[in-house]
Design a protein around this nucleic acid. Sequence first.
DNA 1: TAGCTCATGTAAGCGGTTACATGATTGC
DNA 2: GCAATCATGTAACCGCTTACATGAGCTA
Lengths: 209, 209
Amino acid sequence: MADTARPTTLHFALLGLLSRRALTGYEILKRFRRSIVFFWHAERSRIYAELGRLERLGFLRSEVTAQTSRPNQRRYTITSSGRAVLGEWLAAAVPASPMKDEMLLRTFFADLLPPGAAVSSLRRHAQEHRRILAEFETIKAALRTRYGSPLQSADGALFFGSLVLEQGIRFERMYAEWCEWAAQRSELRGAGPAADTAGPADIDFIMTA
Amino acid sequence: MADTARPTTLHFALLGLLSRRALTGYEILKRFRRSIVFFWHAERSRIYAELGRLERLGFLRSEVTAQTSRPNQRRYTITSSGRAVLGEWLAAAVPASPMKDEMLLRTFFADLLPPGAAVSSLRRHAQEHRRILAEFETIKAALRTRYGSPLQSADGALFFGSLVLEQGIRFERMYAEWCEWAAQRSELRGAGPAADTAGPADIDFIMTA
DNA sequence: TAGCTCATGTAAGCGGTTACATGATTGC
DNA sequence: GCAATCATGTAACCGCTTACATGAGCTA
């Protein structure tokens, strides 16, 4: 029998949005893509599927509005047991999420590339992170214009949303700066005396104490 | 027919390790856990499974050494077509990896908790990131002691490994500082005039321009 | 006329986690 | 005696991506 399992993290993202107001799948999708997707990625098909599952689990109820010229609308409402599991999850301790960063993996093995290639790859990546950083800064400014100082706001969604946005800004800034720094170091290294062609020393690089 | 598919990112992690020297599954596992796992997480069972697949794809060869008191050892060697795909992957452009950070999701919905709970959750998390930061700093010091200044090293694995380690250090420092900052802000907010009990304003928080 | 918005779903296939399975040797 | 190390695999299940399926109304 499916749907007796514990809820997943995506479930809490959906329950969280629905704890603020009843929404259709499509509305959830739009809100998700404008905020949550930046720190918890999920695809459309998964969101629709999990909304269905949450209803079967009793954490959501839905009602359908018939429409003629487009598919019927299904609007979801959180149930009291939905609020309960959401509250439990929020109160629990979080372990740090496991990392998956392909750029770092490439950099780790960049010695297999010609020296210049690592430099330009790092510079390209720096630019991408500066682009995202600029986007986030624009949003921050827009929020300030629209709502005043978010950190003084009585609205919890605005306050905590701004905290998370600030993390995004710090992350992108850190990442872009690291890329630039790493590119410079790689450049200096390439420009130095011709690389020791003594072959790889096979140092077993470790990152644990 | 399986195993005609394009290689995955984990494949390149394994091919990368094997490009330096032939290794058994168990040796790969150990090296993986001491370095790569910090930026590309994978489980043991997956590593064994993908080694088998890489051999069926023709990117690895293996030979078995019979042993009596323990399971036979299988040692993998990278093939020339393995080196070829690894090189192609290294040279290609990387999109930024999609984010999955549960702590940020919780913080985003922290308005559903009593005010003090968000603060202590952020403080706990700050501590965990400071702990990891300290670990990384220890490794950095150990590498310096053992091999001298890694950024002047002729060994590519040591040089680029150190670049990646530095990213880890900057990431953990940034994260810990953000947690502290966010905790302080939340504390100040909680200590202010009694929260507006006007109910949620339902601001549709956005992070796109 | 081309593309965006509205609006929901399903299916196939693979990636990833967790648990099952086995068992001798070495060091505290 | 107990735990860690060595050493490999398999199986069940579920999450996640990608593609399939449909189609009207609006606006540049």
